[in-house]
Design a protein around this nucleic acid. Structure first.
Lengths: 217, 217
DNA sequence: AACTTATAGTTAACATCGTTAACACGCGGG
DNA sequence: CCCGCGTGTTAACGATGTTAACTATAAGTT
């Protein structure tokens, strides 16, 4: 009967993107554009409404509040993140180290291409630390874990807990991305790396990860 | 003559903390408390003023705007970060790997103890990517670099560019901290790690860093 | 065909926020 | 004495997120 007690307002379906041509699509698209151009802090409901060709209160027919709108846009933008990962590793042999590298590159690519959404997802969390399962598509964690398991089985990686190893890989690329988003290393790091993109720094340090930091025998 | 053209309003001295008992001290202290208890998003000038026992416009006698106030508090809080690092490594032998571990632990400790300031410093940057030199005390980068150089010289770490290695170490702890601040891994990572603190995860993965990920010979 | 109802939009307004303008008090030096 | 300066006040402005109240349109239902 009243199994819709929780929501008086009709929420958008979080399981798939809104159809083009609808107002809700215009709202989401306007939000996305504003996030990419002005960033999070400058995003206002009035500007979103103007971009969508409606008045501000009309937004509240589709989203309960600003947070929910942004949350939806972030999740919608990163919805296909998992697919990106799968596409990145598809042409590479199962269990190979190249697959893990490709995952790192794909992560970095998504993070830099959707910088605003990425920062929101990882810093503007209302519900403080969220469960990994709450992240859209678990943020491809299962894909990463699978590749780690396969690499261990293939003898490419040494024996270790796959979850701990996955966390290790994840935190590594995450740290590179977050550090570069926050700080300019152009006068610090050696020029032979080339452009100080996250991608380049990921590549420049991968040998360290594989072989370890200890001095040779 | 008019060498103070840029600033009509008197700015606080950024080079040392305000004296106790002064209004400026009360403002800073109120801001610090609110940041720690409510977080950045909930921080309002009116609450700061109330906490400092003055009216909101009075704040503007000491800080040009909200951003400057927060910026000052962040820098003031993390002013002694470099000293923390130095104290952490002091009892440990020069060139030892323990020194590098102690640096990582100190970084993690400061980040988790001053979560709000840490997040502001690394995500709420107005002047987008800032130069590393602009960070308070360069954020101890020189300390880290020095330890890396010494460890390489001591034969503890293999030969590599010290700046690249420093970045590698930094991004590693940074990634762990940022990931844990954003996401709850309690149902993901193996329970034998213990509490899922950044400190524990740093310790649990340090062998991987030293020995490398590749399978043994 | 007429009446109801839900949906999706509008205008007007409110509370709160950062910030400024205008003014007031106290204190040290000519 | 008064002048200026530092530091506080009150009142107010513009922008923001959000709600209330109203309206128009399309879809059923009798």
């Amino acid at each position: 009967m009243n199994n819709k007690t929780a929501a008086r307002k009709s929420l958008p379906d979080h399981s798939r993107p809104p159809m083009a041509g609808t107002t809700i699509y215009a709202i989401v698209e306007a939000t996305r554009t504003l996030l990419a151009t002005q960033g999070y802090e400058a995003l206002s409901m009035r500007e979103v409404a103007a971009g969508a060709g409606i008045t501000p209160p009309a937004i509240y027919r589709h989203f309960p509040n600003k947070d929910a709108l942004i949350d939806f846009v972030v999740k919608d933008t990163l919805r296909e993140f998992e697919l990106h990962l799968l596409r990145a590793i598809a042409p590479l042999p199962v269990g190979s180290y190249e697959r893990l590298l490709a995952l790192g590159s794909a992560y970095i690519r998504v993070a830099t291409e959707h910088e605003a959404q990425f920062k929101i997802l990882f810093t503007r969390f209302r519900s403080r630390p969220r469960k990994l399962a709450d992240f859209p598509g678990q943020w491809g964690y299962q894909v990463l874990r699978q590749c780690v398991v396969e690499a261990i089985d293939a003898g490419i990686l040494r024996e270790m807990d796959p979850d701990l190893a996955s966390f290790f890989f994840w935190s590594r690329v995450h740290g590179i991305v977050m550090l570069l988003l926050a700080c300019d290393f152009s006068e610090t790091l050696p020029p032979e790396i080339g452009d100080l993109t996250a991608e380049n720094l990921f590549a420049a340090t991968r040998d360290l990860v594989v072989s370890g930091l200890k001095a040779g025998p």
